[in-house]
Amino acid sequence: MPGGLEGPPGTQEHRGRLSSRRLAVLVRHLPHDGALARDLHGESADWTVTDHLLAHMADQLADANWMFATVNRDEDAEPMEFPSPFPRPGSAEGAAESPPPTATSAPDAADAAELARFFAS
């Protein structure tokens, strides 16, 4: 293997052979919908561009249906309520239920001195 490292990538850390550069590369290439991304970004990590576009299309369809029904309703009928948008990650409703975690709110967050000691070894 290149660099004289034998075994799977995760095993070098336990043998003291994983460089900080290699660790940074491994972390940078973690999946966008993985556990780390979900922990850092909350529910928005699970949403792709396609999901956002589909939610927008659902909103547009609901608006168009509301407009059609409003224009074609009986004059004596009560007006229909405007449709609410499809909930998105980080929206006002979602933010009130569970605020996204921050680096300072994590009880086991590493401070600068601890990170310096880790990368120095």
Rank of each mutant, 00 (worst) to 15 (best):
E93I: 09
D46T: 11
E75M: 07
L115P: 00
A96Q: 14
T70D: 06
M1G: 15
A113R: 09
A112T: 09
D33H: 07
F82I: 12
A35G: 04
F82K: 15
T11M: 04
Q60R: 06
P100Y: 08
M80H: 12
P100C: 10
L30A: 02
R38M: 09
G90H: 07
F119C: 03
E114K: 02
P79C: 04
H14C: 07
H41W: 12
S98N: 09
D111A: 01
G94L: 15
A109T: 08
E114P: 01
F86M: 10
H41N: 13
L36C: 02
G42R: 02
L54F: 01
G10V: 01
E13I: 12
E78T: 02
S105G: 14
G4H: 11
A120M: 06
D111G: 13
A110H: 11
H29S: 06
L53Q: 13
D46W: 02
A62K: 03
E93D: 11
S84H: 12
L61I: 05
G4A: 12
W47F: 15
R73I: 09
V71R: 11
S19K: 01
A77Q: 13
P31V: 09
P8V: 13
F118P: 00
M57E: 12
M57W: 09
A58D: 09
A96E: 15
R28E: 07
H41D: 08
P2R: 13
R73W: 03
L18I: 01
V27L: 15
S19P: 00
L40V: 08
M1P: 09
H52E: 10
H41S: 03
A64V: 02
G90T: 02
A58C: 04
A69I: 01
T11I: 03
T11Q: 10
R88H: 07
P89G: 04
S84Q: 15
S20T: 10
G4L: 11
E78G: 07
A69L: 13
S44T: 07
P100V: 14
P2V: 12
D108I: 05
P79M: 11
L30M: 09
H41P: 00
S105V: 04
A110Q: 14
E75Y: 04
E75N: 05
M57C: 08
G7D: 08
A62H: 00
D51K: 12
A112I: 09
G42S: 04
R22H: 10
S19V: 04
T11P: 00
N72D: 13
F118G: 02
R22L: 14
F68D: 11
A77V: 08
F82W: 10
P8G: 07
A120D: 03
A95Y: 08
H29W: 00
V49N: 08
Q12S: 14
D63W: 04
R15H: 10
V25F: 05
Q60N: 05
F82Q: 11
R117F: 03
H29V: 03
R21F: 01
